[in-house]
């Protein structure tokens, strides 16, 4: 049997790796990849708390499904923005997208 803490430690590690990707990568698409890693870490947490809590209560799985929907929406809008910016400014590097920087 696997204790709950194994899942939680793994998801904490995955979340931290995703956070590093978001903070450190220069490419805007790579930043979105990091966000996907963080969302997956959250989903592991939700699913394991569902399984180790009361499995008759489906809240954990339902929220994981909501996270799937939000991730799909976020990727669609994010990549559309990046492609639109790339068309106008010929760059996907986050530090060069500074139109709104004062």
């Amino acid at each position: 049997m696997i204790p709950l803490s194994w899942y939680l430690v793994l998801s904490a590690l995955l979340f931290s790796i995703g956070l590093f990707g978001v903070l450190a990568r220069r490419n805007a698409v790579a930043i979105l990849l990091g966000i996907e890693l963080m969302l997956n870490a959250v989903n592991i947490n939700l699913a394991s708390f569902w399984r180790y809590g009361n499995p008759a209560q489906m809240g954990g799985q339902v929220f994981a499904i909501v996270v799937f929907a939000v991730a799909a929406a976020e990727v669609a809008v994010g990549l559309a923005l990046i492609i639109s910016i790339y068309r106008r400014r010929k760059t996907v590097l986050a530090e060069e997208i500074d139109l709104m920087k004062w």
Partner: peptide, 19 residues
Amino acid sequence: GPQLNKGWPLAALISLAVF
């Protein structure tokens, strides 16, 4: 060019702190 921005050691530190 480099794939990581100039502040990447700070980013690594923040990630490790969160972990």
